[in-house]
Design a binder for these strands. Structure first.
Lengths: 188, 188
DNA sequence: CCTCTCATGTAAGACGTTACATGATTCA
DNA sequence: TGAATCATGTAACGTCTTACATGAGAGG
């Protein structure tokens, strides 16, 4: 139940609406965790039942539909969160990327198409890196951990771009030399 | 349905049992994709129904229980797979790591525990990097794409380790200087 | 007035994990 | 003979995504 912990973590900063929680998660660490309303609202309800969060304020301007609820973390919530942060992480890192998934089998597709897709990836990650650098320069928080995680994002991004450039070059060399190495494929 | 495509991709190399498919996925690109039997067997059944794979051989030594089935890709399977490889990847990369998830909120936990967890991560990734370098040196395949993807794995691994070392250092500096910067936290 | 952003929620279905049950073969 | 590995499968449960429905407030 990592979503619950993410919610509890964010509520340490200040009280929030469910909408704002999703928004913050997406903008702050969307590349580590993505989320949607189908997860947020049921989890808020559950956390409320468990006494880990409470409702700080309800704004009910209209009469129909649910009110806008601002949630706050309770002392029990803080304790549960602290226990989780201090507990051992499971050691499984999952990286899921549909480009990489295809890439693995590029040898079975068309080489020209492969180069096209690599170029698309290069463009995409160049934009992303530029955006990250911009956000990094403009950041207002002095938080050590937040600063370091955004450095990690930029470094990973840059490393991936360097790798893509190398891959592109090597594929083009293979095309030029016209060898049929690609067809002698084996896997254990 | 990315599992189906992974299965079709692997069957290009040679015919395989379901068991071997899981094993190969885990050993070849387990850090990009993980899988379990609850997904493998139902997907094999579905692919068979769709005519994208066929049964190459059934070994039924005993009499009870299901036979050991070796699967092969059909021409239709190859066509479907090729269409997928050449189709545009969705642009969402998902990185899910329970250490990083905790890391984001380290400021709310105990700093000494944070350093301990960082040290555990360093050990874990040092071992992983050593294992990857070993596998890389011993690889028998000349496949361009396979070689490059394992280089990506090692580079990402190394970059993460460099980052962890820097994080450790900066945290310890903060502890020594005894400033209370950690407590002035804000997030947008 | 219309569109965008803020805001809350549910239902259906897809996807993934865990745990269990079964049995053959291989090797020490 | 016992343990490890090879091998197939399902049921229950949990998580995640997608699509939909609803409505308030702000600003052009």
């Amino acid at each position: 139940m990592p979503i619950k912990h993410a919610i509890l973590g964010l509520l340490h900063y200040h009280d929030m609406h469910g909408y704002k929680i999703k928004d913050t998660i997406e903008r702050s660490f969307g590349y580590v965790w993505s989320i949607n309303y189908g997860q947020i609202y049921p989890n808020l309800k559950a956390l409320l039942n468990e006494g880990l969060i409470s409702i700080a304020e309800v704004n009910q301007a209209g009469e129909s539909g649910p009110g806008r609820r601002r949630y706050a973390i309770t002392p029990n919530g803080k304790a549960a969160f602290r226990a989780w942060v201090n507990s051992n992480p499971e050691k499984t890192m999952i990286l899921r990327d549909s480009f990489l998934m295809r890439y693995i089998f590029f040898g079975f597709g068309e080489t020209t198409r492969a180069v096209e897709m690599i170029d698309d990836q290069i463009q995409l990650y160049q934009k992303q890196l530029a955006r990250r650098r911009d956000t990094y320069q403009k950041r207002t928080s002095v938080d050590l951990y937040a600063r370091l995680i955004s450095e990690l994002g930029m470094e990973m991004n840059a490393a991936f771009l360097r790798w893509l450039a190398r891959v592109r070059e090597e594929i083009i060399q293979t095309m030029d030399s016209g060898t049929e190495i690609l067809k002698r494929r084996t896997i254990s």
